[in-house]
Design a protein around this nucleic acid. Structure first.
Lengths: 117, 117
DNA sequence: CTTTCATATGAATATCTGTTCATATGTTAA
DNA sequence: TTAACATATGAACAGATATTCATATGAAAG
C-alpha cells in the first residue's frame, strides 16, 4: 500500500506533515510506550502500585488491603512483573512484591499531579 | 460487605497493611489516575499525541501522517479532548488540534525514558 | 508423608474498547 | 442554493482484557 487513500484529502499541510514525520519516533517505540501506559491504565493495577509505593507487601496483604480476590491480585501481579514494574522476593510461603524502580514512582507522581490540577 | 472474606488469609501483616491503608489516596483519585493512563495506553492515541508534540495539526494531516482513517482519528481526538489532553482551534473548514498543556509533554517524555532504559 | 496455607495458573465468561461503515453537520466557493 | 470538502457522530462488529472458578504448585509444620 504505497499510496494510502488519505490522498483523497486535499487539505493536508504537506510541509508540516513531512516535518512531523521526520521527528516521529519509530512505530515500535510508540507501540511500546502505549503498552507501558496500558499497564498503568487499570484501577486494580494502579491500586496495587500505589500500595507498594513505600512498603513491600505479600499477595494476601494486597488482597485484604484492596478487598479483592487473591486470584485477581495474583493475575495482575504477573502482568506487573512481566512488564518490569514490580519485582518479587520469595520468603518461605510468602512472596513479597515491591515497585521495580524509581521510574514507576515518578510516573505515578506525575500522573497524580495532572489529576489534581 | 463489612467483612470481606479475605480474612480467611492468616498471613496478613496487619501492621503494614493498616499503615498503607492510611496513606492510600481515596479510591476516586486512584480511579481517575487509571483513567488518565488508559488514555495514553493506546497506540493510535499515543501516535496522535506524539505527532502534536511540536506542531498543531488538522484532522486530515494526522490521518495522512499516520495512515489511518479520518473517522478513527476523529473518534480518538474526541477521547483526547474530552480528557483534556488536547485542545481544538477551529479555522474555517479545518480544526487544528494541539497538546493541552505541559503535563502531557512531561508524561510522554517520562514514559519514553522508561522505555529506552 | 500428610495436612495446611500461600501463591500461581488455565479456561471460561462478561465487559470494555477501537475500528469501520454510513451518514450527519458545518463551512466555503461557485 | 448547490456542490465540494472537512470534520463529527452513531450503531455494529471484532478483538482485547479483567475477573471468576477450579485446580495446581510449592513450602512449612505436625
Amino acid at each position: 500500500m504505497a499510496e494510502p487513500e488519505q490522498c483523497a484529502y486535499l487539505c493536508v499541510h504537506q510541509g508540516t506533515v513531512d516535518q512531523v514525520l521526520e521527528e516521529l519516533p519509530p512505530d515500535e517505540h510508540l507501540y511500546d510506550l502505549a503498552e507501558l501506559f496500558k499497564i498503568f491504565g487499570d484501577t486494580t493495577r494502579i491500586k496495587i502500585l500505589y500500595a507498594l509505593r513505600e512498603n513491600e507487601l505479600c499477595v494476601c496483604d494486597i488482597a485484604q488491603l484492596l478487598s479483592i480476590t487473591q486470584t485477581a491480585v495474583s493475575h495482575q501481579l504477573r502482568v506487573l512483573k512481566t512488564n518490569k514494574l514490580v519485582r518479587a522476593r520469595k520468603d518461605g510461603k510468602n512472596v513479597f512484591y515491591a515497585l521495580a524502580d524509581d521510574h514507576v514512582h515518578k510516573i505515578l507522581a506525575l500522573g497524580m499531579e495532572h489529576i489534581e490540577e
